[in-house]
Structures are given as structure tokens and as C-alpha cells.
Simulated scan of single mutants.
Amino acid sequence: MYRIYINDTVLIIADFVPGGIGPNQRIDVQSFDFKEFYKHVKKGEGSVYVLLTDEPRRMFKKIRKPFLTIKAAGGVVKNEANQYLFIFRKGKWDLPKGKLDDGESTKIAAEREVAEECGIKVLSVGGKLCKTWHVYEDRGQTVFKKTSWYKMKAKKQKLIPQLEEDITEARWIDAGDFSFVRQNTFPLIKDIISLLEV
């Protein structure tokens, strides 16, 4: 199964229909055109759609082949008080992440981005939590961003949001207060949060 995030919309490519998906959320694979779909949903209010296919991997590759792919990495940072690091960017709660520099590994990039965007020192970078695919426009070009997310540890410390990256706040949030973040974030971040609650 693959998930493509477009602002508040999620496109699931799978060989089964996940629970809670109604008939109006299923897309006919024969007539599917991603460019048209993207145009339709990029400014929409958000929903979940399922593209049902016998070969999800092949369909996913076919969808993203015409577009530029950018690699990025981010961190899900936990401190000793069982709090997680979130940033507030462009009116939404988010997690620190950014594009890879030339020749940089995803793990190194994730640590660097957390340090730059929040002004903190990371103690350790653990294993990969997940990877996500997010579609957006950059200078009129549709881009697929592949983000590798890593688990990290840091001491509770003063946070310095990177204002030049439109981050107006960085905050430690208790694991029990994720509902606060969920009220004003993207489906992609909600899905990452759900991995922390297992």
C-alpha cells in the first residue's frame, strides 16, 4: 500500500479497500489521470481516496515517473520527559524536516534539519520510523517529496524556531496531548503521530 499526501487529501494506492472507505472515495483505475486528480484536490477541503489496483507498486511508479522527485528527511524527537518536538509553520503544526544537501545521507540530513529548524542538539538518531510521499508545487512544477523520518532523542532544552523558514514556534508537547496537534495539522503528520501511539 502507498499513500500520497496532497495538503489535506490522501490518495491510497492498494490492492484492497481499507476500512471506513465509502464507494464515493474509490477511484476507477482505468480512467485515472494523476494530473487531473491533483488539480481537483490540491485546494480542496481534504478527503481520503483509494485507487484500487492489482499492482500497487507498479501503479505508484507510473504515477510519479513524469514528475521531479526530491529527497528530504525529518526527525521525530523525544525528550526524557516523554515529550515530542513540534514546530508551527505557516499556520499548522508540523515536524522538523528538509531537503537533503548534495551527497548527504538521509540520517545526517534529518539531524541537521532538526538542529537548524529548532536550535537544539540531538543526542542520538535511531532507526527510521517511516517514509512518506508528499506532492506540492514549486515554481509551477509538480514535485513528489520523499521524506525519511527518524526517531531521535534530545534533552529538554530551549527551542529556537528558524524564523527564516516560516517557523514561528517550536514546542515540546506531551505524548498525551497529541489531540491538540491533530486539531490543526496535515493528514501526513496525523499518520506519523499514530505510529508513536502504538
Rank of each mutant, 00 (worst) to 15 (best):
E111Q: 15
I193P: 00
D33E: 15
R89W: 12
E137I: 08
P161Y: 03
Q30M: 11
T132P: 12
R57P: 09
E197V: 14
Q141W: 00
V198S: 08
Q183C: 01
F186H: 10
G44L: 05
R112I: 07
A170K: 01
D166W: 11
D94G: 00
V48C: 01
L100K: 02
K155L: 14
L95F: 01
P66W: 06
E197C: 03
K153R: 13
P66S: 11
I27R: 09
D191Y: 08
V41E: 05
Y2S: 05
V29R: 09
E169Q: 14
D33A: 13
D54Q: 09
G91H: 04
R26W: 01
F67M: 07
I70Y: 11
V181R: 04
P18Y: 06
V181H: 05
I63Q: 01
A14F: 14
S31Y: 10
E137T: 04
A170P: 01
E111W: 00
G140H: 06
K153A: 03
I189F: 03
R112A: 08
M1R: 04
D138M: 11
V17Q: 10
K145Q: 15
K61L: 12
I21C: 03
V135Y: 00
V114R: 05
S179N: 14
E36R: 15
W133R: 02
K78M: 12
P18K: 12
I193D: 00
S31I: 14
K107G: 02
L159N: 06
L11Y: 06
K65S: 14
G103R: 03
R57M: 07
Q30F: 06
F186A: 07
A170D: 06
L68I: 12
Y2E: 09
I63C: 01
R3P: 04
K151L: 15
D101W: 05
L196Y: 02
K151H: 11
L11S: 09
V198I: 10
L188K: 12
K97Q: 10
R64Y: 13
T147K: 03
F16G: 00
Y136N: 12
D54R: 09
H134I: 09
R58M: 09
E55C: 02
A115C: 07
E113K: 15
L196M: 13
D166K: 10
M1C: 09
K155A: 09
E36G: 07
Q25E: 15
S194K: 14
A110V: 00
I193W: 03
F37H: 04
E45N: 12
E197W: 09
V17F: 13
I189W: 02
I173E: 02
